[in-house]
Simulated assay, not measured.
Amino acid sequence: MGKLGDMAKKAKEMAKGHPDKADQAVDRAERTVDERTGDRYDARTDRAAESVRRSYGGDENRPR
């Protein structure tokens, strides 16, 4: 696996160990993208954030 793959694997392992912190980071990233794009891609960022959360089992009680 390349360096990028190794980094992604480490990030996923860390997110599984600290899902509350990972959820905060995902929320912050989603909010930043929405602000900078004027919410033009809001539906896409929602789906992307949900996909990321599923990948590490984060915030399972979040309304969908």
Rank of each mutant, 00 (worst) to 15 (best):
K16C: 08
G38A: 12
Y56R: 07
T37M: 13
R64V: 14
P63N: 12
P19E: 03
D59G: 02
A11G: 10
S55D: 08
V52N: 07
K3N: 06
H18I: 10
D23I: 06
R31P: 00
G38H: 12
D59L: 03
G17Y: 00
R64E: 12
G38E: 13
E60W: 06
A8Q: 03
D6H: 04
P63C: 13
D39E: 04
G38M: 14
S55F: 03
R62N: 09
A25Q: 14
E30H: 00
K9D: 07
G5V: 06
V33W: 14
G57E: 04
V52H: 08
D46V: 02
D20S: 09
K12Q: 15
G38I: 14
A22K: 01
R53S: 02
Q24C: 03
A8C: 02
R62D: 13
K16E: 10
D6A: 08
G38R: 08
K16N: 06
K9C: 07
P19I: 08
D20Q: 07
M14A: 08
G57T: 04
E30K: 00
R54S: 03
K9F: 10
R31L: 04
K3R: 05
G2A: 10
A48C: 11
K3L: 10
D39R: 04
E50I: 03
D27A: 01
R54W: 05
A11D: 12
S55P: 01
K21C: 00
A22Q: 04
T37P: 13
T37I: 13
A11V: 12
P63T: 15
P63E: 15
R31N: 05
K16A: 08
A48K: 07
P63F: 14
S51N: 11
D27C: 00
D23L: 06
A48E: 10
G5Y: 02
V33L: 15
R44Y: 15
D6R: 03
R47L: 11
A49Y: 00
Y41F: 15
P63Y: 13
K21Q: 00
D39G: 03
L4M: 02
R62G: 10
A8H: 02
L4Y: 02
E30D: 00
Y41M: 14
E13L: 10
R31Q: 05
Q24F: 05
E30L: 00
A29N: 08
D42A: 14
D6G: 06
R44N: 15
D20W: 06
G38T: 14
R31F: 04
T45V: 04
